[in-house]
Simulated scan of single mutants.
Amino acid sequence: MIRAFRREETSMRTTAEFADRYVAMWNETDVGPRRNLVTEIWMPDAHFTGSLAEGRGHDRIDAALAAVQRRFAGHSLRLAGPADAIGAYLRLPWILAEVDGSTVARGTDIGTRSPDGRLEAAVSFFDLQPHKADAGKPAWSAASWAAFWANPDPEVARRRVPNVVRPDVTAHWPHRSAPVRGVDDYRDYILQLLALVPDLRLTMEEHVTEGDSTFIRWSGKGTGVEGPFHCTGVDRIRVSQGRVIENRIYSDHLIFQALAAKVDDAWASRAA
């Protein structure tokens, strides 16, 4: 017998809202915010079962999420269609996609929710299994660089950067005397660039890899504070264990001077 499920008691009012939060949890790579989503979405003794990971309780479910994110670094989950519910039972169809939007895997999660709206249990089924090569390939590649910068999105950047760079990453940006160090500052510099030039687009003109370093010659366009502009540059990206450990960006365009000033102001305010 299916027990009664009082929708008015749920903390997340609609199935669509819950589905959005569930997907956000899978895409959140920052440890603190991801753990907050786990607590919001799952009961303390909830059980998640899938072919890639399994866990019972908040700690193990969070660890399962982190393991899948490491295995498919740089990928993102999105709904493949509307979620639906019957009583306490919930069905969420999903797609796992590359940065360029291509599908790596597809499946459906079936869960049961408690009267307060949180999941008591969920099982994840694959409709399309990920290819084994996708799980083992490097997190960063020239192709993924080109796909991201062809149409960069701040939310994608927030998820992507922690997966494709190493914790000890160092970046050398034009017009900046000191290097940018660590995942958080590396990501913030990119977000500051996208805030300064929201319509920025970069095209990879050519690239070559020698040893652990890849050289990318690119051209770019966008609208800065003084109007539309075109720019060119070269990135030298050094990779260790599949992720970026050093990035040197070479360009003499004034947009990068404006970016350096913007970042200095933002970081000075942050430190105050």
Rank of each mutant, 00 (worst) to 15 (best):
S124H: 00
A88E: 12
Y89S: 10
V123Q: 08
V123H: 11
S102H: 13
Y89C: 11
V99L: 09
A88D: 15
G101F: 15
V104P: 03
A97S: 13
L92H: 04
Y89P: 03
W94C: 01
P115F: 00
A85K: 12
G117F: 00
A88V: 08
E98C: 13
G101Q: 13
L90D: 02
V99E: 02
E98T: 13
A105D: 08
V123K: 03
L96Q: 01
V104R: 02
V123I: 10
V104H: 04
F126D: 09
A122F: 05
S102M: 12
S102E: 09
T108W: 08
A121C: 07
T112I: 13
D109K: 01
G101D: 12
S114R: 14
A97T: 08
S114K: 06
D109V: 09
L119S: 00
V104I: 14
A122N: 03
V99I: 11
W94T: 01
I110H: 14
I95D: 14
D109N: 11
E98F: 07
L119R: 00
F125M: 10
G111E: 01
D100H: 10
I86H: 15
S102F: 02
F126E: 11
R118G: 01
P93N: 02
R106E: 14
I95G: 06
T112E: 04
V123M: 06
R91C: 12
P93C: 05
G111L: 05
A88P: 06
R106A: 13
T103F: 00
E98R: 15
S114H: 15
D100W: 02
A97Q: 12
T108D: 11
S102D: 10
R113T: 10
I86Q: 15
V123D: 03
G117D: 00
G111A: 12
V104F: 01
F125G: 08
A105H: 04
A85Q: 15
F126K: 05
A97N: 06
I110K: 11
L128R: 10
T108I: 13
L92T: 10
Y89R: 15
T112F: 04
L90A: 02
I110S: 06
G107W: 03
A97P: 02
S102L: 13
L128F: 04
V99S: 05
T108L: 10
G87A: 14
F126Q: 07
A85N: 07
S124I: 00
R118Y: 09
